[in-house]
Design a protein around this nucleic acid. Sequence first.
DNA 1: AAATGCGTCAACCGCCGGAGA
DNA 2: ATCTCCGGCGGTTGACGCATT
Length: 313
Amino acid sequence: MEGKRVEMSQIRKGPWKAEEDEVLISHVKKYGPRDWSSIRSKGLLQRTGKSCRLRWVNKLRPNLKNGCKFTAEEERVVIELQSQFGNKWAKIATYLPGRTDNDVKNFWSSRQKRLARILQNSGTPSSYSKSPKIKKEVPVFHNVPALEAPKFSSSMEEASYSKGQSCSSSYIDNSETTKLEQLPDLVNPKLYNIDANGAQLELMSRGQNPYAEAQPQFFFPQIPQPQPYLTLSLESQDLLAKFEDPYFSQVFAPMDVPELGSGHVGQPFLEPVRCSGFGAREETDNPVTPDTFFDDFPADMFDHMEPLPSPSE
DNA sequence: AAATGCGTCAACCGCCGGAGA
DNA sequence: ATCTCCGGCGGTTGACGCATT
């Protein structure tokens, strides 16, 4: 027992040093990405097997897109797959070459935080333009190539170790011409669920999608029917969808959002705006990545919403 | 220039399931 | 059948850097 405690105290935690990385890489070169616990039992590293595995999978594995932001297409894929599979980050990551489940998870939680904050900020309409943080770029996915079968899984560490790392995607082709017709149906308000405190925004399709469990390893999500009139960013789509959700209204009605109570739910909320106004600016890195919508948010955006019932009702 | 807020990322923790003894 | 160990996964946290006030 005492010995065990001493042993535990020798386990290193925290950031990895370059030397440790080298040892780990060397081990994987020799034995492959397995026997993680033997790394410590052999005295090579004072790290747990789990820690070694995590380090390898998330940082050292070849062909990782370390440091590369998610492309618009990748974001779309994540959003699409999350709606199908729920928070199955490892599964989702298998559709994104070079991305790990941790990447996807981080991306998603950042996005959730952003959405939650945007929704909170919506309590003060002027805050759209005043909040500089909401300048975050949010892509509009005009260009939505069909998802191809994953060439390899993010957990396929056997992938040739010596291959160089690259930020280029094996399946994403930015040269495709814009096709609004391929936009996924991400504005279905039925998809969304917001918990009681309004902080956690999540898709409800978890466990409800017939494909969610049935899909094999190389199953690919169905690209829903086109929504040709949609030109809003995904987040604006999310947001608008939530505004149409009665539960959303209930949750957020008590907030200081007078605008939310002065419209007409059921009216066509998304106007056939084509690449004009918000969400259509060009960007150097990604020509089809527009600016975020909130800076340029129409002041009357919420005018189409029905008055909310009072909490007492 | 300092304070603050926010986003991103790396790493840890706990739970779970499978394999083997 | 049960127990233990290991690996995989999802959730969470804390550090850090950047932008803004």
